[in-house]
Simulated assay, not measured.
Amino acid sequence: MPSSAAHAWTLLCDFDGTISHDDATDLLLERFARPGWEALEADWKAGLIGSRACMAGQIALLDVDDATLDACIDGLRLDPAFPAVRAGRAARRP
C-alpha cells in the first residue's frame, strides 16, 4: 500500500474569503478562465441566471492543468484564526 504522503489530501472549504484571505473562485477565474466568465457573473448579479448555472458555466471556462491548479490552491493564504484551520493543524501534529 502506498504511503499516506503520496495520497495526502488538502481540503479547502471556503466561501468568499472566509477561510482564505482571497476568494478562491475569483482568484482561479481571474488567472485561468477563458473569456466569458465575467458575463456569467454579470448575468447572475442581474438575476438572469441562478448561482448553480453561473458557477457551472464559469468552472467550464477554466483552462488549467491539474498541477497548476493544485499549485495555485496550495498557495492560498489561510486565516490561522479560523477554527477549522486551527483544528486541522492540531490534528497533523505528531
Rank of each mutant, 00 (worst) to 15 (best):
D74K: 10
L28E: 06
F15Q: 12
P83C: 03
E41L: 08
L61D: 04
E38C: 09
V85E: 00
D70V: 09
A53G: 02
V64N: 14
A56Y: 13
L27V: 08
A67V: 01
C13W: 10
W37R: 07
L76F: 10
A46V: 01
L62R: 11
R52V: 10
P83I: 04
S51W: 02
T18C: 00
L28G: 06
S51I: 10
A67S: 13
A60V: 05
L76T: 03
I73C: 15
I19Y: 00
R31A: 06
A87V: 03
D26Q: 13
A84S: 14
A81V: 15
L69R: 14
L12G: 01
L61W: 05
S20C: 14
V85I: 05
S20L: 09
S51T: 09
C72P: 01
A67F: 00
F82E: 12
S51D: 06
T10Q: 11
A84I: 14
W9K: 14
W44R: 03
T68C: 12
I19K: 00
D63I: 00
L69D: 09
D79M: 02
A84G: 08
L27I: 07
G17N: 03
W37P: 10
D43F: 05
L78S: 01
G47Q: 11
Q58H: 05
P83V: 06
L61T: 06
L11S: 08
L27Q: 09
T10E: 12
A81R: 12
I49M: 07
L27M: 11
F82R: 05
D65C: 06
H21F: 13
G57M: 07
C54Q: 14
G36Q: 11
D14H: 01
A42E: 11
D66T: 15
P83R: 02
L76P: 01
D43S: 15
D14M: 05
D70I: 07
L27N: 06
A53E: 14
I73R: 10
A87Q: 04
G36E: 12
C13V: 15
L12N: 01
L61N: 04
A87W: 02
C13P: 02
T10W: 05
S20N: 08
A42N: 10
D70N: 14
R52T: 10
I73G: 13
A46L: 05
H21K: 10
G17S: 08
L11N: 03
R31C: 06
A60R: 07
G17Y: 03
D65A: 09
R52L: 12
L29T: 03
V85H: 00
T25C: 14
D79P: 00
A53D: 13
G88Y: 00
C54V: 05
G88M: 03
L62I: 04
R77Q: 13
A71G: 13
S20F: 00
E38I: 09
L11K: 02
W44M: 01
Q58W: 03
L76G: 03
L27R: 13
L76E: 07
C72T: 10
I49S: 06
S51M: 09
G47D: 08
R52G: 06
A56P: 05
A24F: 02
K45G: 04
T68I: 03
L28I: 08
S20G: 12
P80V: 14
D63M: 05
P35Y: 07
L40Y: 07
C72N: 02
G57P: 13
C54D: 12
W37K: 04
W44Y: 04
D66E: 15
D63T: 01
W37L: 04
T18A: 03
A24S: 07
L11G: 05
F15A: 12
